[in-house]
Design a protein around this nucleic acid. Structure first.
Lengths: 217, 217
DNA sequence: CCGCATCCTCATGGATACTG
DNA sequence: CAGTATCCATGAGGATGCGG
């Protein structure tokens, strides 16, 4: 841990724990599920190994993550503690806050479908008023489809009511776009092109941590 | 700004903007209201002047804060942009997450009443179920009083229904404590002792940015 | 005074090599 | 595979200076 702020303030104390570089990205990865050391090293794309080891130690002693010895004791798995998992809420808030930074597209940045999955969840999480429907737009080969969150669940459809299968084909390039305003449909910018089909898209919605079938093009 | 993460991920892009050391604490201060350079320098207790100047420039070019020239153009005031002010939500989330870190008390850390004000707001903000009452405990000279947020507003009272004036006197030391669990009344730990009276306490509730009358002992 | 810019020292991060 | 060790670059912290 780098130097303490030395302030009796909730934000300062939180940042004393998770404010160091890479820390919140480690938590982000573990929000997708427990992971091995090598998984984290790969997902954090070039983090120095000494840094990763140090951060994992810091986060463990702070009580944010824990090591699990799986089957036989030879494989170490990292997972969030209950308290660490509660970072999902503020992280979701930061993801929602970042939408203006996302609409310019990936440019040269790395992309992983799991991150888009997190973003979709963040945009929906707790943002659906009781009697209202929230939607995130997805542009598919020029057509616009919507992910809609309702009080009873999440469904997929076209704005005009047609079924998505009318638009989606197994080999159509799918452009996932985040709405410029959180949960509004005002503007959609192409974000990233994913090879996928409707089954893979539904998989994002239903079980975001299983992203098999999606890959960057 | 330090090095980009280079990931097309909402969290990573957010941290590219506000992830550097001191940045979120600057935003925290500006959430309390616009401030001068010297105000920030003092509230951030020993931040190097070159760092503060650099961070303010970074945050301005990123669109999080803006400079205002007040009266005549000789006094520069820093304030949040509309987008910057939207950081209140994730910051509140981090403050709520940090409650386990706060119950051990201030120890050697600096304390400012404005930060406690922010914490109280964070604990209440958007956390009050429609038909339920949320409360934060405040221990006053041994007695327990509660700040209660209801759908219709915030009020102060004793758990047994007596009026707070029965407990509070003008010169009683007031111990503000954050509940161990967010918005539960299970445990209260002394947090910080403040000289104050009931008028000053009500001032926290009604206008958190005007903290006149409260001082650390 | 306020609002920075410069200079210097040292802790921290980043990249690579190496080891149980 | 899961780290540790090493070396260098960079950024933080602190003091000081300087123009308006």
């Amino acid at each position: 841990m780098s130097r303490d702020y030395g302030q009796y303030c909730g934000l300062a104390r939180a940042l004393d724990v998770i404010g160091d570089r890479w820390n919140l990205l480690i938590v982000r990865q573990l929000l997708l599920g427990p992971a091995r050391y090598g998984d984290l090293r790969e997902a954090l794309s070039g983090i120095a190994t000494n840094l990763l080891a140090g951060r994992l130690r810091d986060l463990e002693t702070a009580g944010v993550i824990e090591r699990r010895l799986s089957e036989g004791g030879n494989a170490i798995t990292y997972a969030l503690t209950a308290w660490g998992a509660e970072l999902r809420e503020p992280i979701n808030g930061l993801i929602r806050w970042s939408t203006p930074l996302m609409i310019r597209g990936p440019e040269d940045d790395e992309f992983r479908p799991e991150w888009m999955s997190l973003a979709l969840r963040a945009l929906f999480a707790g943002r659906v008023p009781v009697d209202q429907t929230a939607a995130v737009n997805i542009s598919v080969a020029g057509d616009l489809i919507q992910l809609r969150a309702t009080p009873t669940g999440v469904d997929v459809g076209l704005p005009d009511g047609r079924d998505v299968d009318a638009v989606l084909s197994a080999d159509a390039p799918i452009v996932l776009g985040l709405a410029a305003g959180v949960l509004t449909i005002d503007a959609v910018a192409p974000a990233v092109i994913i090879d996928g089909d409707i089954a893979a898209l539904r998989a994002i919605i239903e079980a975001p941590s299983t992203m098999a079938g999606l890959s960057k093009t």
